[in-house]
C-alpha cells in the first residue's frame, strides 16, 4: 500500500489550518484554495486531514500496482 496526499480545492474555504500545522510545510493557500507546493516533502502523517474543517485534504491509501 502506498499513501497519497489528495486535495479537493472545491471544498476548501481557505482557513489555512492545514498549512499552519503541517510539520513539513508542504501546503500553501493560493487564491483562497489549498495547494500542494512541496509534495516531495510530504510524510503522509495525515495531520492536515485530521484538522481540515472542510474535508478538502486527506491521505488515501492506494494499492501498489503489481
Amino acid at each position: 500500500m502506498t499513501k497519497k496526499l489528495i486535495v479537493n480545492p472545491s471544498w476548501c474555504k481557505g482557513c489555512g489550518i492545514c498549512v499552519e500545522f503541517c510539520p513539513k510545510k508542504v501546503l500553501k493557500v493560493v487564491k483562497e484554495k489549498i495547494t500542494v507546493v512541496n509534495y516531495d516533502d510530504c510524510i503522509k502523517c495525515g495531520l492536515c486531514e485530521l484538522r481540515c474543517p472542510d474535508y478538502a485534504i486527506y491521505i488515501e491509501e492506494v494499492r501498489d500496482e503489481e
Binding site: 482557513c15 481540515c52 474543517p53 474535508y55
Partner: peptide, 28 residues
C-alpha cells in the same frame, strides 16, 4: 472526491457544509 471516511459516514451531496471558514465544527 472526498476521503473514504467522508464518503461512508457523511452525506456527500450535502457537503461542503454551511459552517464558516475555519470553524472547528467540521473537525469535531
Amino acid at each position: 472526491m472526498p476521503s473514504e471516511l467522508i464518503l461512508k459516514y457523511m452525506r456527500e451531496e450535502h457537503l461542503p457544509h454551511i459552517w464558516c471558514p475555519g470553524c472547528g465544527h467540521g473537525i469535531l
